[in-house]
Nucleic acid binder design. Structure first.
Lengths: 120, 120
DNA sequence: AACGTTCATCGTCGATGTACGATGAACGCG
DNA sequence: CGCGTTCATCGTACATCGACGATGAACGTT
């Protein structure tokens, strides 16, 4: 059976939305801490698939894993691994929605990354 | 014989300066290219030592490898490897200065990285 | 020409990253 | 309850990273 049950241009995510976002964490004053943090966040962006995933999440403000699997040409397990890396870096958050999982950007952490890069 | 020949608070880099900088490369219009490029640059920042090195270079506008080896607690060969990665990413440029090598930031590429991140 | 200094490269080793298929856990539905 | 869907995790295989010491190449100095 196909996924197309209700409409023909379904986006799986439907109405799933995210919990309220956290505020932006502070930029470390200590330079070594700032370096470590920037490196950790940069590492999360160090793969094209993860950049693509994060862009998707930024665009549509919450997204089901299946949507990502449809758009990124990688196996489902591989995408799940990339999502885990993004989550471990604090850049995204996953919320269970029945049998599915909705991933959302953590805008504060993205803003922190932008701030760290802009301060280079 | 020590390096301290002329002054006692020597910075090895002395008067070594960099060639004029290149302008900022264009931000790719194709999203996949932008993702690849951002991932490639982010990977260069994905290690604290490389962030520290780049910060040094930004601060003092041109730097001798020995200065970096003095400030970063890693073996000389390891630092050379990190410099190579930064160079391969296009973020820095090395110019031979007698027996030494002066590394300089490529400000256009740094600006490109900032632009790509800011556009997230 | 011989030497010391400076830096890059090589070889090695363990750790981590990336990809996949297979399996498992959680959930809604019939 | 049994079943299909959805996603995470496991196990595996290969590539790359990150660190080091040792060696080599380029250069200035003596």
């Amino acid at each position: 059976m196909n996924v197309e049950a209700s409409t023909d241009t379904v986006k799986r995510n439907g109405t799933t939305v995210c919990a309220p976002a956290e505020p932006m964490p502070p930029v470390p004053t200590d330079e070594r801490e700032a370096n470590d943090l920037l490196a950790r966040l940069a590492k999360a962006f160090a793969h094209p698939a993860r950049v693509a995933i994060l862009r998707m999440l930024v665009r549509q403000e919450g997204c089901i894993v299946g949507d990502i699997v449809d758009e990124v040409p990688l196996a489902q397990s591989t995408i799940s691994q990339h999502l885990k890396q993004l989550k471990d870096a604090g850049l995204i958050r996953g919320e269970v929605d029945g049998p599915r999982v909705c991933y959302c950007v953590e805008p504060g952490v993205v803003a922190l990354f932008k701030a760290l890069v802009a301060a280079l």
